[in-house]
């Protein structure tokens, strides 16, 4: 047991270290490359004096590493600085949008994960049959479709032609839960379609891999029914790979959110990030980038820890 805890702790420590390295990378990526923040705020016509003053004010005259630690310290304390474009506090603007994004991603996951696993099981059950071939054909198509193609198809047919749902997903605080759900129906459906096929195909591969093991044959030769074989012998071994598949796809979903939010004009983190990239608002971009990366790394850590915990070799060492 102690060695298991140690492995988990190691994995978490590694993840944190990676996150730290990522923060350096994001910081360096926005600082060393050409482009002067002061210049971009004040524009080309700014006087040298005004530029110097602003540089002083933003601490741009300090060496890069001092600015990095300053920034990191702030981020760790929830102080993300102020946006250059409108002078608002980033943390305040972000919190509501982060909530919206997580709300959307959560519901997309709630729909897509069970659906993908069930469809994956069906594909395994009818391996090489018509359903299986159909599923793998659809997968091929769906990994080739851009998110906005799916999104605008849904808007065109479901929102504009049939008028079932709004084409623009406006949400505000005073909305009821049901109204909110209605607003996110189409973006959530788009996200689901984006990850579904991939998740299904990977689930299918993971289960097939387990089903081809020699111990499944042993179980069959004991006279167990297909259901008993899946429940007792396949399932315990398939959990880890399936969780892994789910986590990888959730990480993918986090990225897909950026484009989907823009399609549906949904007030989330992705929309916020894209707007401020266009405005070259570096502090906002840094903050958003770090948050997205943290979520992504976090999901990968969960996947690895599940694999460690569900491995009997690690749970019961020799």
């Amino acid at each position: 047991m102690a060695s298991l805890l140690k492995l988990v702790a190691q994995r978490i420590a590694l993840g944190l270290l990676l996150l730290l390295a990522v923060s350096v990378l994001i910081f360096v990526g926005t600082q060393i490359l050409p482009g002067d923040v002061a210049q971009s705020i004040l524009g080309q016509s700014a006087t040298p004096q005004a530029l110097a003053n602003l540089r002083e004010q933003l601490g741009l005259n300090d060496p890069a590493y001092v600015r990095y630690f300053h920034w990191l310290w702030g981020m760790l304390h929830g102080d993300m600085g102020t946006a250059l474009s409108n002078g608002q506090d980033i943390a305040t603007s972000l919190s509501g949008r982060l909530k919206n994004t997580l709300f959307l991603a959560f519901w997309a996951a709630i729909v897509s994960v069970p659906l993908a696993i069930i469809l994956g099981l069906i594909a395994v059950r009818h391996k090489n049959g018509f359903v299986d071939k159909l599923i793998s054909g659809l997968t091929l198509a769906s990994i080739s479709l851009p998110e906005f193609f799916i999104g605008y198809l849904l808007i065109y047919f479901v929102a504009v032609q049939m008028q079932w749902f709004p084409s623009v997903s406006t949400v505000y605080d005073s909305m009821s839960f049901l109204e909110r759900m209605k607003a996110i129906a189409l973006p959530a459906a788009t996200l689901t379609l984006v990850v579904l096929a991939h998740m299904m195909r990977m689930t299918r591969a993971a289960i097939l891999n387990v089903m081809q093991s020699a111990y499944i044959e042993t179980a069959e030769l004991k006279g167990l029914t297909p259901f008993e074989i899946i429940r007792r012998h396949a399932f315990p071994n398939a959990i880890a790979p399936i969780v892994n598949v789910v986590m990888l796809n959730l990480a993918y979903l986090v990225v897909g959110v950026v484009v989907v939010e823009v399609i549906f004009v949904y007030p989330g983190m992705g929309q916020y990030l894209v707007d401020h990239v266009a405005k070259r608002d570096v502090p906002v971009v840094q903050a958003c980038g770090l948050i997205f990366a943290a979520v992504y790394i976090g999901l990968n850590i969960i996947a690895d820890i599940t694999a460690i915990v569900s491995n009997p070799r690690l749970r019961h060492p020799k």
Partner: peptide
């Protein structure tokens, strides 16, 4: 490993915010 720890689209957005 480090580069792949950040989703590609996000990293591209971060970098494009300062590049011409």
């Amino acid at each position: 490993d480090l580069l792949m720890a950040i989703p590609t689209l996000i990293f591209a957005l971060v970098v494009l915010s300062v590049l011409p």
